[in-house]
Amino acid sequence: MGKHEIEVTINGKVYQEEVEPRMLLSDFIRDVCGLTGTHVGCEHGVCGACTINVNGTAVRSCLMFAIQADGQQVQTVEGLSNNHELTDLQKNFIECHGLQCGFCTAGILMSTEDYLEKNPNPSSKEIKEMLSGHLCRCTGYDGIVKAIEKTIEERNQSVLS
């Protein structure tokens, strides 16, 4: 039950490390790579805090082993901003009071970015369905929905103009 060498690209940077097969991808990202923006809540796929993007799709990092990410492209919340400039979605989370304690935020941002890329014009109901995969224990869902809706509106306007 030895260690395996893996190579994972996270936010454009290549991490070459030795891992035990049982190491969760969420633990690899936080403890081995030091990227603590990805949060760990329930560790069985329910809370959504650890959601990241693997090969262009939002998934739970606690339901993947690090070894399964060998050779894959991973993006975490640290990889969203460009040169420390927050994205429009992140700015709207601040503006619309879309976060309180912030524990669930990283996962929600990763899910939302992926979701909006595939569904640029979701209804409120569809946004809420997407968010049902995330638990916010501050229960601040209203601000979160507003931040997402504002982002959609702004992106549509910039496409039009």
Partner: peptide, 9 residues
């Protein structure tokens, strides 16, 4: 089934 994020995988 579950959520968008779990159906993705």
């Amino acid at each position: 089934i579950g959520h968008v994020q779990t159906r993705n995988r």
